[in-house]
Every structure is written in structure tokens, then in C-alpha cells.
């Protein structure tokens, strides 16, 4: 699935889009970063409510396709800056993690 379709499905706001053509494949839900690092597949949509700068580091190192901040969570200022600096995909939705997964179509 392309990110634009995901954005539409989740009625999401864009924090940063690095690669509009990136194919998002599957997903992973989690807030404990080490668990996400160990289990999130490459190119996945990562559904989380964690919003600090370490989220960007984990997303970059594991090469997930997009960070999806759920429950109306916005990135804190450091994460907001970091997703732009390292240029990774990050969106935010008012949906809960549960509803976001259901509506994502992933």
C-alpha cells in the first residue's frame, strides 16, 4: 500500500513524508522500543503512541516504512525535528491504535 492511501484511510495528518512512493507492507503495534526493534518488519507501518525522539532512531535503524502516531498523539518537539532531519515518513491520526489498524487496510 502507498502512503497516500494509508493517509486517506486513517484521515491522518502528515508530520513528514520522505518517500511518497514507498510501499508499506504489513504493520506492527508497540510502544516498547526494544520490542519494536526486535519484531517490526522492514517497511511496516508502525502504530504507536510513543512520541519522543527515540522513536525516530528506532524507525530509522529498523527501516520501518512509516511511523503512525495514534490517539491524536503529536510528536514532541525533538521527534518533530528529527523525523524531518533524518527524513523519514511520519503521520498522526486521531484514531486509537485498534481503530487505526482496522481502518488502515494494511
Amino acid at each position: 500500500m502507498k502512503i497516500n492511501d494509508l493517509i486517506k484511510n486513517l484521515n491522518a495528518d502528515i508530520i513528514n513524508i520522505a518517500d511518497v512512493d514507498r510501499e508499506i507492507v504489513g504493520g506492527y503495534c508497540g510502544d516498547f522500543l526494544s520490542v519494536v526493534m526486535g519484531k517490526a518488519p522492514e517497511s511496516a507501518g508502525w502504530f504507536t503512541i510513543m512520541n519522543n525522539q527515540n522513536v525516530a532512531a528506532v524507525a530509522t535503524l529498523t527501516d520501518v516504512g512509516v511511523i503512525i502516531l495514534c490517539d491524536g498523539v503529536k510528536p514532541d518537539p525533538l521527534l518533530d525535528k528529527k523525523v524531518r532531519d533524518v527524513d523519514i515518513n511520519c503521520i498522526t491520526t486521531s484514531l486509537s491504535v485498534f481503530d487505526a489498524v482496522k481502518k488502515s487496510g494494511l
Binding site: 510502544d31 516498547f32 522500543l33 526494544s34 520490542v35 526493534m37 526486535g38 519522543n52 527515540n54 522513536v55
Partner: peptide, 9 residues
């Protein structure tokens, strides 16, 4: 609170 400490490191 930062998302670490899951005992998976």
C-alpha cells in the same frame, strides 16, 4: 516512560 526498559535489550 521513554519507551525503554522492556527487558529486550
Amino acid at each position: 516512560d521513554l519507551g525503554f526498559g522492556a527487558g529486550m535489550g
